[in-house]
Design a protein around this nucleic acid. Sequence first.
RNA 1: GGAGAGUUGGCAGAGUGGUCGAAUGCGGCAGUCUUGAAAACUGUUGAGGUGUUAAAGCCUCCGGGGGUUCGAAUCCCUCACUCUCCGCCA
Length: 430
Amino acid sequence: MLDQKLVRNELEYVAERQRIRNVEIDQVRLVELEAQRKAAQKRSEDLQATRNSRSKAIGQAKAKGEDAQPLLDEVAQLGGQLKEAEVDLAGVQEELSAIMLSMPNLAHESVPPGKDEEDNIEVRKVGEPRSYNFEVKDHIDLAERNGALDFETASKITGSRFALMRGEIAQLHRALIQFMLDTHTIEHGYTEVNVPHVVNTDSLKGTGQLPKFEEDLFKLVTDNEAGNDYYLIPTSEVPVTNIVRDSISTAAELPLKYTCHSVCFRSEAGSYGRDTRGLIRQHQFEKVEMVQVVTPDQSWQALEDMTSHAENILKKLDLPYRVVILCGGDIGFSAAKTYDIEVWLPGQDAYREISSVSNCTDFQARRMQARFRSEASSKPELVHTLNGSGLAVGRTLIAVLENYQQADGSVEIPDVLIPYMRNKRTILSP
RNA sequence: GGAGAGUUGGCAGAGUGGUCGAAUGCGGCAGUCUUGAAAACUGUUGAGGUGUUAAAGCCUCCGGGGGUUCGAAUCCCUCACUCUCCGCCA
């Protein structure tokens, strides 16, 4: 959520900044609502002040043994008027907060304008795609033999966009997770956490998935009270970032650096027909996530650091990749700036997203009321939150399979993964 | 699933329907003392909104929501969570 004061006082500026995302703000309606809010709030508060002082007088009169009846008659009408004023105010505030909750974060000055991923700008390219003296296969052709990757059985068990892995592929998948977590904890200073895969609406509002993007989520059927539903997590960014919801940290406790492996669930509504083949886009996938909670002065440096942490995984795996900065039209709702890391996939002859690293500045923190105190005497201040994949495990698996494939259809294991594969050096041998 | 007890400021923990935004302790901050530090002592210290040059003032907040009342941290209803005991269970 944006700062209401900023929206109120610098509406023109906010509208201008949102245009880079191709988001148009209804300034007229906002000004109108704001005026209504102010009037309704004033009326309600004045009535409350009257009630409070009259009630106090009644109490004092009774304490002195005086007759309170004249005072009681005086406030007879107050209750109804107050009720009316409060209902009025609540209505205006509801509409205002709906607008505020569905307004995206302000894009950073360095975010380029643009419509979609075509307009993203490449920042750097690392590593050279290998050349193969045979016809390259994609990960499906490589792994579907022997049922190492089995979409048919998965669709029988569940449905489309689910996968089943057997034997060496399942092992490689697990090895990647271990390798990523070890690298982030040992080399990059993150603390490993394990979190619930089911979250409540407050958590999803905190990180910005709700109320606007409910259709992307899997919602559980429960007998919970309305508004307190459970959802499967679309990313562990949600539970991990919400660790600091409704809390005040001390400056000394920051930065918090968490890494987390989790399963992620996405309904992929609206992506019909896209990436239907293979592991690229699934309803269920696994991801190792990085989350940082930092003081505002550190968040832009943290964004660069986290991007380099994700890149480090790819470097160690010796996979070619490039880093792009997302344009205004492609950037996520909560993010002020996002780098995507795209890995080279020979089977697709293209770079494909394998990580997304974002600085959400105080946008999520304001929704979550996540704050810190720099000095005990000073006011609590909003933290900045960042998140990034480090990396998407399924897509990394694809990248290893496709980049390390051999002429005979087997796949070499990257050096750094060999210890995690019980010293196996080749898999999927014919 | 059954029975009971709880949820109060950064933390711990009192609280009678009416000077309660809330005792006290810890922690924090400032000061006295000290060469310095510690200890001791003194003072100060919740959050959000509104307002103002700044303040004062005013409003809201005692787990969430609703109700009773002129007035609710306190009474009633409801939901969530925590703890204890019983049952079931990986």
